[in-house]
Amino acid sequence: MQRLFSRSWVVASVSFVVALGVPPGSADAQLQPNPQTYLAAPYNWAFRDRFPNVDALFNAFDYGHAILYETLWRQPNAPASVLDTTRFQFITRKLLRNPPNVPLDESAIGPNWVKLAPEVAQMFEWAHLFHRQVYDVWSDDRLSPAQKDVQVARLMRYYDSRDDLAFSSKPKSMNLMEGQPYSLAFRKRFPKFNGLIWSYHWLQMTLYDALLASSSPAERKENVSAVVARFWSLIDSAPASLPSVMPQSAAIAPRFTARYPEAAIIFDNLHSLHDVVSDILADTTVPRGAKRRMILEAAARYRDSTSSITSLEEWKSMAESMGVANMGGVAPVTGGNER
């Protein structure tokens, strides 16, 4: 009987030995944040149903972030043309014109980036889910404004339930983004692609104002069309028209910021960390072996709600002082806040 099992035990033993050889507590193999799906609700996919073309644009945006990090990691000394010409042209002339109709898997586009900092990749994913679910709430015509507020508050609780993934809802000092040794490295090496990423962030935030300002489905459609048209004008006249400073919610999406300041801060922190990761990866003076550690440290600072905090007023005034026109402009919408 034992002989009959011998081959099986060899297989099992090999499996176990290999498995046990992976030190779960080591920095390289530690158990990372547990992936979690979106919050189930009746409004799920409402934005996709009503604005499929804009939803598809967001799918394409996922490609831009992933390919950016993958390129910077795999080609640390890549010339500007790799991103600012080849990738930029592909994205603006092909991908955005014919965007995918389903969300993309970033680990398929940037497998090495995801392996480098899966914790941060999951932070981005978690925030992007939050982003999209707020669009869903404000696209669902069955909900009254008050009910939408309730649902957004519920989404906030769901988002904050993962403190290992959630960005702080406290405004962070700009020093985290622009006062570090690696700061600005990306925008100096790849200004055009940097402007493209900022144009993404501009559309993501101004779209909220388009949804919030509308009192009817027809008006909502008009406002969404208006911000999308402005986005295309930014792209079509690139690089001159691309944002030259990071779009900030308080300046470009004042309605959303006033109604949901914590969410607006979270998204600003998300977009800031996007830039910080780009800077760390683009900075050739940062040793390759130190990049993961520095990315994780930066991410931890953006999750932490006790350090590098500024006041709400400072955050708003800083956004205004940087010039809304340099960010792509305020959301071009009509109508007042839906009450």
Binding site: A19, D28, A29, L31, N112, P118
Partner: peptide
């Protein structure tokens, strides 16, 4: 059960 996620040097491992 996901024992570990994939890293730069080690594969993902599950049981």
């Amino acid at each position: 059960y996901q024992w570990s996620f994939e890293s730069l040097h080690l594969p993902a491992l599950a049981f």
